[in-house]
């Protein structure tokens, strides 16, 4: 499968502080790739390294077959990036911001920008300082999509958007992906990953825990176990031999036990907590 993003052994530290360590993963052409992890997991550091906003210490990043450092400017022509904060110059009009982004790209995006503004109901006459977070996000979506890039990178894109706009947003992404684009979606919202992503990677404390298809992540051999015994309730993920689990439980007075397939949320929480059991 053709890789649109290939990250190998990416390491970045901020002085003594951890950024990311030895992160490697691929994003394939035509997929929507979820990038999951709690705050401080290293998602933004990875994305910022990809975009050249920060310089990484070691490893390599290849985007669209080009080196992220050497071919930085060329790569950005084919990327549509939406930052989590969506901040623009407050004194500018929305229409001016959208046109400015197109002008820097030296592209005439009038038609596509118009279509996007209509779909997302963006008021282009307003000034940026008059917009709410949700409306600024909509402007950011237009800026990221208007030049029809080959790769989309979204950092927490749906925060502040109402459910209707969220739906429109994912419809738009799917439209571009059907036309051959690729999308990397960094998010905390697991249903977004479950409903829209083909594959996903989970980050924790600067390390990549796992990367696989969303189906495989859910179909893990680990089970979500809930035991009510001896007056206490224990709930944990169990990844060992099921016979060993039954043997362990057999010596106790069990009031109730449930063993079920974990949801993506359970899996995420399992990695989030570092695999510790939750009682």
């Amino acid at each position: 499968m053709e890789s649109v993003i290939r990250i190998q052994n990416l390491t970045k530290t901020y002085g003594k502080k951890r950024g990311v360590a030895d992160v490697s993963f691929d994003v394939h052409k035509g997929e929507i790739f979820g990038f999951i992890g709690p705050n401080g997991a290293g998602k933004s550091t990875t994305i910022r390294s990809m975009l050249g906003l920060i310089r990484y210490d070691s490893g390599s990043i290849e985007i669209l077959g080009m080196d992220a450092v050497r071919d930085h400017e060329k790569i950005l022509k084919d990327i549509g990036y939406m930052p989590s904060e969506a901040l623009f110059y407050p004194a500018m009009k929305v229409s001016d911001v959208i046109k400015y982004a197109a002008d820097v790209r030296q592209a005439d995006c009038t038609e596509e920008a118009g279509r996007l503004c209509e779909r997302l109901q963006v008021d282009t006459a307003k000034k940026i300082r008059e917009l709410s977070l949700g409306n600024r996000k909509k402007v950011s979506i237009v800026c990221a999509m208007q030049h029809k890039p080959r790769l989309f990178i979204f950092d927490e894109p749906t925060g502040g958007l109402d459910p209707l706009v969220q739906n429109t947003f994912f419809e738009l992404i799917k439209g571009y992906v059907n036309d051959g684009a690729t999308c990397m979606l960094s998010t905390h919202i697991l249903p977004e990953v479950r409903n829209h992503c083909d594959r996903a990677a989970i980050m924790r404390e600067g390390h990549l825990i796992m990367a696989d298809t969303v189906d495989n992540l859910i179909k893990t051999s680990a089970k979500c176990v809930r035991v009510e015994a001896d007056g206490e309730i224990r709930e944990y993920m169990y990844d060992g031999d099921i016979n060993d689990l039954l043997a362990e439980l057999s010596g106790r007075h069990i009031d109730n036990v449930t063993i079920e397939e974990p949801s993506l949320e359970d899996i995420f929480m399992h990695f989030y907590d570092g695999g510790k059991e939750r009682v």
Binding site: G52, L53, L76, K77, L87, R105
Partner: peptide
Amino acid sequence: DGHTGEFLYALPVS
């Protein structure tokens, strides 16, 4: 300072 860098520097300009 104004957090507009992520917008500007994600555009194709060195």
